[in-house]
Design a protein around this nucleic acid. Structure first.
Lengths: 140, 140
DNA sequence: TATTGTTATACTCTATAACTATA
DNA sequence: TATAGTTATAGAGTATAACAATA
């Protein structure tokens, strides 16, 4: 019982794995993608608790705690006490964090952009549609 | 709330990062993708030295050494001395490794297949083309 | 007792640098 | 010397379990 869509799924999965490994190798000393995603979330959504961020990214609270620690150590975000609930902590983006996101959105990830530039317009369109589909896969 | 001005390369890169994280979480105790790729290489290409495998996958020799250790510990591959050059080691797939690859290629990765099955035929075709493009990006 | 955040611990995958053995 | 492999060490990212503080 050999389903052709199974092979496609496997091939796609392994391509995603290889490409993410390649991308990671290409951006070693920059702010990591996990950190960029959280910073972008703080930028667009506003101050959030660590728990909210963990839910939003689909990672465990300790993992998010470590990411927030890294952002705080880099001066891109800060923690603040919640005045209404002493258990809660609010994570906010700093001015440096806002500047970083604005700059990042303008010019980032030279390797990936070079790889995109080497493609034809129709191929770029295919990857853009693929990105939309990947985002939809992650939705629930 | 996403910024519409995001470059498609950046959007695609972050989608790849998120999806690879999601996939990793979904397959915790199985043989890892890094190991599957090496085992498939041994299956298709034949016995190889660790250095050849590292080049083929684009990772460092110590990283490949660890992957080979894991495959050997799992009984899926074995090391053998090279009769012509005492410095060299040949890594071979075992009968169990061959069986594993055959089985893996038939049915694997339930989460990814379920995600694929939820798509339309044209959407699956888009992702299949995207996988080809990703592989091409990794070529050099 | 339930919730929120953090710390402790452990595992995978990756890298560079240093070491061993052989050519 | 040069090459192939391995070990030592380090760092990012993830997880579960345990702990502390507050509600």
């Amino acid at each position: 019982m050999k389903d052709a869509s199974d092979e496609s799924a496997t091939r796609f999965r392994l391509a995603v794995f290889r490409l993410s490994r390649r991308i990671r190798r290409e951006t070693p000393d920059a702010v990591s993608d996990a950190q960029v995603l959280v910073l972008a979330s703080l930028h667009d959504v506003g101050p959030s608790t660590p728990g909210m961020l963990a839910d939003r990214e689909g990672v465990s609270p300790p993992a998010m705690n470590r990411t927030v620690n890294a952002l705080e150590a880099a001066g891109l975000a800060r923690r603040a006490a919640d005045p209404d609930d002493g258990r809660r902590v609010l994570v906010e983006i700093t001015a440096a964090g806002t500047a970083f996101i604005d700059e990042t959105r303008r010019r980032r990830n030279a390797w990936m952009e070079q790889a995109f530039a080497a493609l034809g317009a129709d191929e770029r369109a295919t990857l853009t549609r693929a990105a939309e589909l990947m985002e939809r896969m992650l939705d629930p």
